[in-house]
């Protein structure tokens, strides 16, 4: 079974809001000094599901696929040390400043060119743009079925049995292969890189393709192909003033809060 996991390099999504800055003129986030890109957490969970499938089947290959600048190499290394077999990087200045559409276009073209792929996994959304578009986009472009928000995947008799997280529980969905599945955090804990895999990772093949090698025209990609125009990027203002309750004991503090809430007719 051949699995492709799409992974995106993003700024650490857990950095505190208090130190997060954007450059409004350039419409970009200001990178924090000394921080590195990380693999988007949902993509790490997608890779975890791929590894579980391979463990369960006792066979199969896992290819990491990423579109981005040379800085994405660190997340490729990370993915390989978690157990992926090889990686394909789409690196070309013409990919720059694209949108979800052009990104899906390039990833879909790469998957088609690779050939023989049974399962394509993506995160439910990239944790920087929070769009949640690329996975389903790849499915449409390749004419494949898609199942979103997977928390578990079992492969039986050449079929995918997917547990999909819903707001009020989950549903079990059957899908044929090849298919696209987007993965949610309900997957649970992801594994750590083992020493053995990390040692092996350095020797695993990493290929890079340009737009030309994908057979795509520059006019379909990056800024030129994008359908979305970024008009503004800003940090929303938040002007709430907190009134801290005073009191010596929990009873006194609680009493003061209840009094405030009652006076404000909130309770």
């Amino acid at each position: 079974m051949k699995i492709v996991v799409c992974v995106k390099a993003i700024p650490d999504p857990e950095i505190a809001a208090s130190i997060f800055r954007v450059d409004e003129a350039a419409k970009r986030m200001v990178p924090l000094p000394g921080t590195r890109s990380v693999m988007s957490p949902f993509d790490e969970q997608a890779l975890e599901l791929a590894l579980r499938i391979r463990d369960a089947l006792g066979e199969g290959s896992i290819t990491l696929l990423t579109l981005g600048a040379e800085t994405t190499r660190s997340i490729v290394k990370h993915g390989l040390s978690l157990g992926a077999d090889d990686a394909l990087m789409l690196v070309d200045p013409v990919f720059d400043d694209g949108d979800s559409y052009t990104t899906a276009r390039a990833l879909a073209a790469a998957i088609q060119r690779m050939g023989g792929v049974d399962l394509i996994l993506t995160g439910r959304q990239a944790a920087d743009g929070d769009c949640g578009v690329v996975g389903c986009g790849i499915a449409e472009l390749l004419g494949l079925p898609a199942v979103t928000f997977a928390m578990d995947i079992v492969v039986t008799d050449g079929m995918l049995v997917i547990e999909r997280a819903l707001g009020e529980g989950s549903e079990i969905i059957e899908a044929p292969m090849p298919a696209v599945v987007t993965v949610s955090h309900e997957v649970g804990k992801v594994r750590y890189a083992s020493l053995r895999e990390t040692m092996k990772a350095a020797r695993k093949p990493v290929t890079a393709w340009s737009a030309e090698q994908l057979g795509l025209d520059a006019s379909e990609l990056g800024t030129r192909g994008a359908r979305r125009v970024l008009e503004r990027l800003y940090v929303p203002v938040n002007d709430v003033q907190c009134e801290y309750m005073v009191g010596e004991t929990p009873e006194e503090l609680a009493g003061n809060l209840v009094e405030r809430l009652h006076a404000a007719r909130l309770i």
Partner: peptide, 9 residues
């Protein structure tokens, strides 16, 4: 976007 730390138009 950015997990709610920013907004874009």
């Amino acid at each position: 976007c950015y997990g709610g730390k920013a907004e874009e138009v």
